[in-house]
Structures are given as C-alpha cells and as structure tokens.
Design a protein around this nucleic acid. Structure first.
Length: 396
RNA sequence: GCGUCGAUGGUAGAGUGGUCAAAUACGACACGCUGUAAACGUGUUGCCUUCGGGCUUCGGGGGUUCGAAUCCCUCUCGACGCACCA
C-alpha cells in the first residue's frame, strides 16, 4: 500500500468537492480498481492559463497513479457556447475550424504538465466526434432526463430571470451536451473547476439514467486573489502557460499576496505541512518569488526560472535595464514619435503625447526624462517607455 | 404575422435637437508611494495638430434641420408581449 498517502493527497489537496462523497470514491480507489476519468476543455480561447494548470496537475496525479485519463477537447460543446459564468447570452460562437486550431495549441501547452506519451499516456478525444452525430431523437431522449426546473435552478439563470433578461435555449441545453460526454465515453469520474459543478452534475444524472452507474465528480478550486478573478480573466492580464518565463514571473509577482498560499497548494508539490508553516506577513515577498519560480520550473525548467527571477529583480526592483531590448531602426532627423508609431511600439501620436506629458518616457543613456514631444532622433537612444517597455533606437 | 422596446466608446451604462469626443463605473495606461507589476493616491484614456483648432465616431442606409447620438423613413439584428400552432 505504497499508494496510500498518494490516494489521500489525490483526494484532498487541491480538491474542492467530490460528489457524491469523498468516502465513496476513496472506497473505490482503495480497492485497487483503476478508473477512467476525464476533464473537458472547450478550446474557445487561444491559450490555456494558469487556472487550467490546477486541473492539469490533478490530471497528472491520476495519470501517475495508473488510471485511465482522457483529455477531452470540446470541439462539439465549444460551438454550443457554455453559459457558465456568463451574465449575458454569449454573442460570439466559434466555428469548428477555429476550435480545432485552438485545440492544437491547447495540447501543446498541456503537454507541459501532463504526459501524452510514455507510460500510461493521456488519451485525447474530441466530443464533436459523437455530439455531431446525435440524431434528433437521441437528443430528445437525453433531454427527457432533465426538467426545466432543474436547469432553471442555476443561480445565473435565476438572476437573469429576475432581471427579465434573456436565457437563450441554446445555453439552456448546453449542460445536456456536456453531460452526454460522460455517457459517450463511459467514464467513472469527471474532473473540472468548481464553476463547472452544475454541468458535471448534469452528466452524473445522465450516466445514472442511461448507464445505470454512479459517476463521480471531482471539482478543483478556482485560483483567485482577493480581487476575485484576476487569474484567468479574459482581459489583458491572463497568465498564459506559454508566456515567456520573465513575463510569467512578473505576472505572478503582481498578484495579491493572498494568492500565494493557494498557489503553493494548487500549483506546486511543496508538502502541506511546510505550507502551513508559512508566515505571510514576514515572508510574502520571498514566498511569492519562490512560488513563481516553482511554477515556471514546471512550465519551462529550473534555469529559466532562475533567470526570470534575476531579470525581474534587476528590472523592477533595482530598476536596471534588462539584457534583451527590442530594437527599432530609424533615420537621423526623424521625429521620435513617428518612429515609435511606425514601428507599432505605440498606437498613436496622441498616446505618445500623453506619455510625455505624464513623464512616462525616459532616456536611459542620459538618464533623464524626455519632455520634448517633438524630439528628433539625432543619435542612437535607449528608452524606457512606461514601466515595462524598453526600446533601443538605432540609426540606419 | 401583429405590437412594444432596444442597438452608444475595451466592457457595463447615462445622454433623447446645439452647452457631446459623449456622464459615471470598471478595465487599460502613466506618475507618486511601496518589499511588489499588490493596495492606496493623482492624472490620462477617438485621431491629427503649428496647441488656435481641425477631422472622424453613438447598428447600416436615406431624410428633416442653420445644426442630429438625439426627430422622421427604411433595413439588419435582438429582447419582450400577443396571435398562430399545440
């Protein structure tokens, strides 16, 4: 029973809830039975982010314990539009082609955490393979297992009802499709973020009805800091798994301190006992650096993690110039502003003016702030624009 | 099919003939502060500018007017209600 502690870890660490209960699942695992499980990813964005990493790591754990793990690409459900977390009806839907293209990227990114080859490799499946083939009658038979009341229970639908906002039938039916995946693959367990609970439980209902068996559902907590969903939000500050190491480091450092402990628990292998001993008040900075390094080491390697840290501290803490700077060539006599806009460093001359007025442009060679908006280029320059942009201007 | 309402900047959402490049909030960007690219504070947030101003924007097209995001017509899309069907 070498696996005993591993089973315990598998069932507790980084786990939000287990349905119907942890005890039932533990019983099955203790019996030595190998189960089949999956997690679905709708490839509706170009990249996986650090929030996905939580689930992927869980995947890996199952895989390492010898269970049959399926990485499901939701190219069928993706075209339907998951309403989870959406306050409004989704407006954009994805085509099959877009989804397949994204899926390719997903797999490449996921490969950083899970194994698609070697011993007990993860299987890749596409739910479009069966969802697209469902006949109308089959769909109705699936629908038979649900009541409108059940579907309408979802908080987000309730809210919309209250506000008299649209609930499109399409999003209403989405959980059924996702639920059918479990039937089609005949899985014993589904893994997913806690925001997916409703959809996953729909699958549970279906499996019971159509396969007469109990499907387990394991949810993982969502990674977030005090500001909420800063991590994995659709806006600019997504921490993508393929972000270059230095950028990853910076983005992780910019998260609130309250995200540190969850990150250790969910994204690293640091033992629980050690994590419990952490003193956030005293060591927040160094702990955050450590967790950032550990995360990067998983996505790249130790060396990248180290150099990312070095780059971070020299750039932001000591305010030194980074080693690698983007270069832009220009002719002598050109307006600096025009050269920057032409090379797409800045969006417009207006932006340039704003930055200069806000003292956001610095000449790093002379070590002074540039105040002249109409500065002409006379010699090669090294500029710091805002906090993050470093640009070298070279004379042609 | 009939009717009602709606479509505004990255998002949410004001504005209902000139004072509108369009409130407010969020986001984004910069500066200050900080162990931090956090928090907090301040400023900026359509484009061009000789800094006077100029130009293009409020679902598409057309019109009324000296003047339209605002009024009218029409088209597209959406929500809601009614009818049809059951």
């Amino acid at each position: 029973m070498v696996d005993k502690d591993k089973i315990n870890e598998l069932l507790t660490r980084g786990v939000d809830k287990i349905y119907p209960s942890r005890e039932k699942l533990e019983e099955v695992l203790r019996s030595g039975k190998k189960i089949r499980l999956y997690q679905g990813f709708d490839p509706t964005g170009a990249q996986l982010h650090i929030g996905h990493m939580v689930g992927l790591r869980k995947h890996r754990q199952w895989q390492d314990l010898g269970h049959e793990v399926i990485f499901l690409i939701g190219d069928g459900t993706g075209t339907a539009g998951d309403p989870t977390g959406k306050k409004k009806t989704r407006e954009k839907f994805f085509t099959k082609e877009e989804l397949r293209a994204n899926a390719k990227d997903y797999l490449a990114q996921a490969a950083k955490i899970v194994r698609f080859d070697g011993e007990n490799p993860i299987k890749i499946m596409y739910n479009g393979d069966w969802l697209d083939k469902l006949t109308k009658v089959e769909i109705l038979n699936i629908a038979e297992n649900f009541s409108v009341q059940q579907l309408i229970e979802r908080d987000m639908f309730q809210e919309r009802l209250k506000k008299n906002e649209t609930i499109n039938l399409r999003e209403f039916l989405y959980p059924l499709l996702q639920g059918y995946d479990s039937v089609a693959m005949d899985v014993d367990l589904e893994l997913g973020g806690s925001d997916q609970t409703f959809n996953m439980l729909a699958g549970r209902t279906l499996v019971r009805a159509m396969k007469n068996k109990e499907k387990f559902v394991m949810t993982t907590p969502l990674l977030s800091d005090s500001k909420g969903v800063k991590i994995g939000k659709s806006e600019g500050n997504v921490i993508g798994l393929t972000d270059p190491a230095p950028e990853l480091f910076g983005k992780i450092m910019s998260l609130g301190d309250d995200a540190i402990i969850p990150m250790f628990t969910l994204l690293t292998d640091v033992p629980n006992e050690e994590i419990e001993g952490f003193d956030l008040k005293k060591d927040a900075m160094s702990l955050k650096k450590r967790v950032a390094k550990l995360i990067i080491a998983q996505l790249y390697d130790d060396a990248s993690a180290k150099s990312a840290e070095g780059a971070f501290s020299s750039t932001f803490q000591k305010k030194e110039i980074p080693d690698e700077i983007q270069e832009v060539s220009a002719k002598a006599g050109d307006l600096l502003s025009e050269a920057l806009v032409k090379n797409k460093i800045l969006l417009s001359k207006s932006e340039w003016r704003r930055l200069v007025e806000g003292k956001g442009v610095h000449d790093l060679v002379k070590n002074e702030t540039i105040e002249d908006q109409n500065l002409k280029i006379t010699e090669s320059l090294t500029l710091k624009i805002g906090k993050k942009k470093f640009i070298k201007i070279k004379i042609k």
